[in-house]
Amino acid sequence: MKSGVLNLVLKRLGIAAVTLLIVLFAVFFATSMLPGDTASILLGQAATPEAVAGLREAMHLNDPAILRFLLWLVGLVHGDLGTSYANEMPVAALIGGRLVNTMKLAGITTLLSVPLALTLGITAAMLRGSVYDRTVTILSIGIISVPEFMVATLAVLLFAVYLKWLPALSSVNEAHSLTDLVRIYAMPVITLTFVISAQMIRMTRAAVIETLSTPYVEMALLKGASRGRMVLRHALPNALGPIVNAVALSLSYLVGGVIIVETIFNYPGIAKLMVDAVATRDLPLIQSCAMIFCLGYLFLITAADVVAIMSNPRLR
């Protein structure tokens, strides 16, 4: 039976690898559709046609697209992300520190939102139909229904404008003490936590409610099991797959959320870097940032599927 699980997991990883290739291809081509000739943009208005032609040659811009794609892939494998058009720094150097900042933001949000959402989701399912359950459900549906920037603006209004507890903007460089740290991360993390948790609560609640209506939970009831035992011993172990799946899927919403949140709070992360790069049409930078986001997203989705496979008792 063990080999069955292994096979499924390997198959899933194989699919992820193929998907990654397709995604890289898509990212590369979408960005190479950027209007305007890259060489002439780089050299500016005053450039001579000869200089432009030379640069095109040097950048392999005359080669067929598929060849450029392969060259780009080879570069990626060697850790060469290319050079930024805007300020001629290596993309890897530009991304490095920013990526760490984004990871920190995502990490803190995860640590906060996962326990919060699981507790709320599971308890809401246990107390299905109660005032508590209805409140949680309505709040989460409300948060899902509004754009992230609205959650962010509401948070700013509440914490920065009315209560004046927190600054509206973040600046990582000013972090000297713990209180500074809290003040800097608070607004982005609060916003992201709201956005991620709402999704996770709904999916967790649905997963637990589904297992609570199975015949084996009814059987446990007819054995005289308490409500707690029914949920903890019988429903939860079987809802684990769907719940972990829900967690991973919700965390993949971080990718979208982070783009808005970093922009709105001026947080120096990789998403902000990318939005700026789009504004300046900095092709290599956009490609690399997009790739990193896709990687993270793909990783989470694949992780969700792998966990779902492994938690299936029938494959044990």
């Binding site: 015949p215 084996y216 009814e218 059987m219 446990a220 019988h234 172990p237 079987n238």
Partner: peptide, 10 residues
């Protein structure tokens, strides 16, 4: 249905 009434994960 005993098949459905046994908890599959225990």
């Amino acid at each position: 249905s005993a098949a459905a009434s046994f908890n599959p994960s225990s």
